[in-house]
């Protein structure tokens, strides 16, 4: 092994792929090179959540994760399609509540809200605020985001 590029193989949104990466590249840099622009580096310090992706079922900050460490993992990003129109309940709820202005932070909020609802199907407002405290929305759409998570929780319960 060396500082040179390496071939890694992993599952990206359900599809097996191979990519050549250098050890110093992070996950966001790799995804953007692969044409996926939903995870974006904003603060670069793991604080804002704009670069959220899921690795083997765990939400991580793509800006603080070396791309080579995706080797042999399953990665889900905001581009992962759901259902007939491609959107899951969280995305539908965000659209319905207008839980964004510029939309830059939205992929991270959607992914983290999905994680929250998977772990806690009926979160209180305090629990939503606490769980999403690692995601920043500079347009300050927080009230709509919280309403969207509550709506998504109701939609998920109605479905199941």
């Amino acid at each position: 092994m060396s500082t040179a590029q390496r071939i890694i193989r992993f599952t990206l949104n359900g599809e097996a792929i191979a990519a050549s990466v250098a050890p110093h590249e992070n996950v966001v840099e790799l995804l953007q090179r692969l044409g996926l622009h939903g995870a974006r580096e904003s603060c670069g310090q793991g604080l804002c959540g704009c670069c959220t992706v899921r690795v083997d079922g765990l939400a991580v900050s793509g800006c603080l994760y070396f791309a080579v460490q995706l080797d042999a993992t399953c990665v889900d990003t905001i581009e992962q399609p759901f259902g007939e129109d491609g959107l899951d309940e969280v995305q539908q709820a965000f659209a319905q509540c207008g839980a964004f202005q510029c939309g830059f932070c939205t992929p991270g909020f959607v992914l983290m809200s999905r994680e929250l609802l998977a772990a806690n199907p009926e979160p209180s407002e305090d629990e939503i605020r606490h769980y999403l405290s690692g995601n920043l929305c500079r347009c300050a759409a927080y009230p709509e985001i919280i309403r969207a998570v509550q709506l998504a929780a109701r939609m998920r319960r109605a479905r199941s």
Binding site: L47, T52, L58, A59, S61, L64, Y65, M112, G134, N135
Partner: peptide, 12 residues
């Protein structure tokens, strides 16, 4: 631990 960094950092 609940208030240490955030969920994503604690996962890793």
């Amino acid at each position: 631990l609940r208030t240490l960094a955030n969920v994503r950092v604690r996962n890793v």
